[in-house]
Every structure is written in C-alpha cells, then in structure tokens.
Amino acid sequence: MDILVCIKQVPGSSQVEVDPVTGVLKRSGVQSKMNPYDLYAIEMALQLTEQYGGCVKCVTMGPPQAKAEMVEAICMDAESGTVLSDRKFAGVDVLATAYTLSQGIKACGEFDLVICGKQTTDGDTAQVGAEVAEYLGVPNVSNVLSVMAVEPDSIVLTAALDNKTVSERVSLPCLISVDGDINTPRLPSFKVKQSIDEGKIHFLSFADFADQDESHYGLAGSATQVERIFPPEKNTQKQDIPGNATEQAKALCDLLCQLKML
C-alpha cells in the first residue's frame, strides 16, 4: 500500500502578538517546526507499510525552508519528501491550499491512501483534508482512530464522530485525517540525518502541475479575504466577588448564566 502523508511547517510558537497601534504582527524569532499532529499521521503510515508493505512519501506546501520538515520525515523512515513551493502559491486560503495540495499530490504519483493530521497548530481549521479529498475525487474520513484491516481494495477503520465511534469499510484510494494521540510517533533518527540523501527531497512548482490556470492558485484562487487583523480583547480584569456565602454563591450562579454555562 503506497501512502502519502501531508505535512505542514508551522511556527515554533503560537505566541504571536499584534502591535495594537500599527496592526502589524510582531515577530518573536521565526523558528518553525513540523505541525505536531502530522507526527501521528506519519507514524500511522509507517506502521501500515511495515505491516502490509508499500512505501511512505510525504508532501508539504510552503517556502523552500519547509525542506526541514521533509528531512525530519525521512529521518523517521519515510522514503522521500516533496516541497510544493512557488511564489504563485502565496496568500492562499483553505480553498486554494487544498487545490494546490491536490495538484501537488497528483504530480507526486499514484497513492492508495493519503493521510493528514487532525489539524494544524497555526491555522487550527481542520478542514483542508476534506477539501483535498474533494479535489482528488476520493472519499474522506476524519478523526480516524485506527486502521483495523487492510484489504485488497479497501481499509476497515474506526473513527470518532461527536458522541459516537463508527467502524467503516472505505474503498481505496481514500483520504483520512487521523486524530491526535492515537500512537506514539517515533523519534527521527540522528544517524539518518547525518548522512541524508538529498536526492530524496524533491521540489515542485506551479510549472510541474497539470492545471496551468494561475487563477486557481494563490491569492487569486482564494475565496476568502482577510479584511483586517486586530488583537483580541483580553479579559485581564480581575474581579473580586465579595459578600457572605449566599451572596457569593448567587454571584457565581449569575456568572455561570452570563457565560452560557447553564
């Protein structure tokens, strides 16, 4: 079973601040890391191919520096990694991200299974996977907890759905997004990193894609526009709830109503 894992490079910290006067993002050291949820996706892919054969490849969209995440995946034992990088991809929203990824996945070859992490830690939308599946024309299942069996043309899996757990047989090829905490991702091998084969990392750009209509990518291919960004109103006000026990209890109950907890 050949598996492709979608990976994203995310900021190393979510502690981003906006200058309240200029509305500009304050940069606090632009360190990046692999989206932590993607580690579970890689681990699941590796375990599946160890058991059932096949290979694990990875793909990411981002700046050329996202190569670092492909190196990390290879050090975890993935076969190769592809970075989809082009200035034409800049300014993408979910729609254009998903479309670009789907074009990139098609350019990477044929796969039985595409695995995504649950969500990213910077975008937090958890919706790119389903949109990619639409553009690949394959079924998708989110919140996958485990793959119980691999059959010639299908997989049997369990997935969480709100207050239920669902067991399903899904035809291949398909796309799944895995839940967090479903396995223990292995550590990247330092030894592999010391002698990494650069040939295992590929770069693809707009020119390599089948769809050459520029209006489907980047800002032009995005449906949503950010009108403005602003710092959130912080509830840093501290409030004392005085009075006797009865008054305090009443005030707490009112607070619960105000917070829509009741």
């Binding site: 929203d93 979910v94 729609l95 998903a98 479309y99 937090d124 939308t125 958890a126 919706q127 790119v128 996977g129 389903a130 949109e131 599946a133 639409e134 553009y135 998708n140 299942v141 989110s142 995005s222 449906a223 949503t224």
Partner: peptide
C-alpha cells in the same frame, strides 16, 4: 467539520472555520 469543507470545495467557495 468534514461536510462543510467538502461542499465548499465543490462550490469553489470560501469557508471560515
């Protein structure tokens, strides 16, 4: 979270989570 993106992609429309 699964249905909205899939439908939005089919419509080529914007979706904000």
């Amino acid at each position: 979270r699964q249905l909205a993106p899939r439908v939005a992609a089919r419509c080529r429309a914007g979706l904000t989570a």
